[in-house]
């Protein structure tokens, strides 16, 4: 039957993150006058990621880590069905998709966090760079510029996998991520929207504290 597979907060999170990651990559490459936008975009990404971590604990069923993070055995069993070109159906993330969520959230969290301490030695500094030692800032900057390519690799892998499912295996994954509806035997339990609003507000407040209040603390 046709049910709501992805709730609205998860879908908004996904597409906002996709847009901001592309925007961050572009502004980071353009540099100079675009750097203030690069920083703002990074703060928004950090807030989105904090929200996703919270939503992975208190959110709707398909958004919860406890539901989609699976072990090696489930992953390899699923990989075999994928290799046989008939991937086992899953409501929400399949086991490999679950690993991709962890990798993507982890890599982006590292990217956003190191960005807070980074310094490009031109005129752009992360908001917390002043508070850290010179060695820390150098290390964070180096991780920030190397990890960027890990993120690019994950995005390419993600988009390629979706393209294979969508057009070679004829499994519609893009549609459900847009309108939320997909085929499933049981309807996943949905968390209330107000809870998403609270999680989003707390995440935004935490990032505001990190980038605007903490650096000015005496």
């Amino acid at each position: 039957m046709r049910v709501r597979v992805w709730d609205l907060p998860t879908r908004l999170f996904h597409w906002a993150l996709a847009i901001l990651v592309v925007f961050s990559f572009a502004t980071g490459k353009l540099g100079s006058s675009w750097m203030p936008w690069h920083l703002k975009s990074g703060y928004a990404i950090l807030a989105l990621l904090l929200f996703r971590l919270a939503w992975g604990v208190v959110g709707s069923e398909t958004a919860r880590f406890s539901r989609f993070v699976r072990g090696l055995r489930a992953g390899s069993a699923y990989a075999r069905t994928l290799l046989a070109r008939s991937p086992a159906p899953f409501t929400g993330h399949n086991p490999l998709g679950g690993w991709m969520v962890l990798a993507m959230v982890g890599a982006l969290l590292a990217q956003a966090a190191t960005g807070l301490f980074a310094d490009d030695d031109i005129r752009t500094q992360g908001p917390l760079a002043e508070m850290a030692s010179e060695a820390t800032v150098r290390l964070m900057t180096r991780i920030h510029s190397a990890n960027e390519w890990l993120v690019v690799g994950l995005v390419v892998l993600h988009v390629a996998a979706i393209a294979i499912y969508q057009w070679a295996l004829r499994r519609d994954l893009i549609g459900p991520m847009v309108h939320g509806m997909g085929e499933s035997r049981a309807a996943p339990r949905l968390a209330p929207r107000w809870l998403a609003a609270v999680a989003a507000a707390l995440s935004a407040a935490a990032v505001y504290y990190l980038v605007a209040i903490l650096p000015r603390a005496p």
Binding site: L83, R85, A160, I164, A168, L169
Partner: peptide, 19 residues
């Protein structure tokens, strides 16, 4: 990947270990 998922032949599988 095109061979495996679009042409659906054995070009990818014959180079995979443990299959």
């Amino acid at each position: 990947l095109k061979h495996h998922f679009i042409d659906r032949d054995d070009v990818l599988v014959r180079m995979l270990p443990l299959s």
